[in-house]
Structures are given as structure tokens and as C-alpha cells.
């Protein structure tokens, strides 16, 4: 199921790099894990609604009332290469 090509694809989506040797090992591990997940195929789920939230909690809403925003310095304090005004990243292409 999971081959090297698929491993490359999901690594790219995850923004992770896998070196050749590591990729081989990781692919094999994932393959084993995913093969095990197929246990689920034995479970009849015909007509079962997928359950995204365990409690029937609905409509949790807040009022549209503004609170003061945060001190910019605090929000930016941990940003690598930040200049105290904005978060900085290498040039985003497009």
C-alpha cells in the first residue's frame, strides 16, 4: 500500500524531508502500521454516521464584543528573525 513514491508524496505534503535510508525504513514501518489498520475492514460500519465530536454539544458561540488586542512585542518575542513589527519569512514566491 505505502510505497516509496507515496511516501515521497506524503512527506512533501507534510513539509518533511526523508533521506534515502530513512525513507526506506519509514516506508516499511508505515506500511506495517497501515496494514495493521486494515483490521478495521472487519468491522461492519454500514449506515454508521462518522463521529467527529463525541458529545452532542452544539452552537457554542461568543458575543461579538471586542477585547483589546495583545502587545505586539509579546506576540513577536519568540519569532525567529522578527524585527519587532512583523513575522519574517524568506521570500514567498508567487
Amino acid at each position: 500500500m505505502i510505497d516509496m513514491e507515496l511516501a515521497d508524496y506524503i512527506a512533501r505534503l507534510s513539509q518533511l524531508e526523508l533521506e534515502e535510508g530513512e525513507k526506506r525504513a519509514m516506508t516499511a514501518e508505515l506500511e506495517r502500521i497501515v496494514a495493521y489498520m486494515d483490521v478495521l475492514n472487519r468491522l461492519d460500519t454500514q449506515g454508521v454516521e462518522p463521529m467527529s465530536h463525541v458529545f452532542p454539544v452544539k452552537n457554542v458561540l461568543r458575543e461579538d464584543a471586542a477585547q483589546p488586542s495583545w502587545d505586539r512585542g509579546e506576540l513577536l518575542a519568540g519569532s525567529p528573525g522578527g524585527d519587532g513589527e512583523a513575522f519574517l519569512a524568506p521570500k514567498a514566491v508567487e
Binding site: D64, A66, Q67, S69, R72, A86, F87
Partner: peptide, 22 residues
């Protein structure tokens, strides 16, 4: 008046990153 998931203002403009919270 406020953002969709937090209570920061939606006002247009403002110095960069001053209408923000965690």
C-alpha cells in the same frame, strides 16, 4: 466588530500585528 474566532478588532488598517492575540 471582532474576528471570527477571537475577540480582536476587525478594523481595517492599523500598524502591522497590532490587531492580534495568541
Amino acid at each position: 466588530k471582532t474576528k471570527i474566532f477571537c475577540s480582536c478588532t476587525t478594523e481595517f488598517g492599523g500598524a502591522p500585528n497590532t490587531h492580534c492575540c495568541p
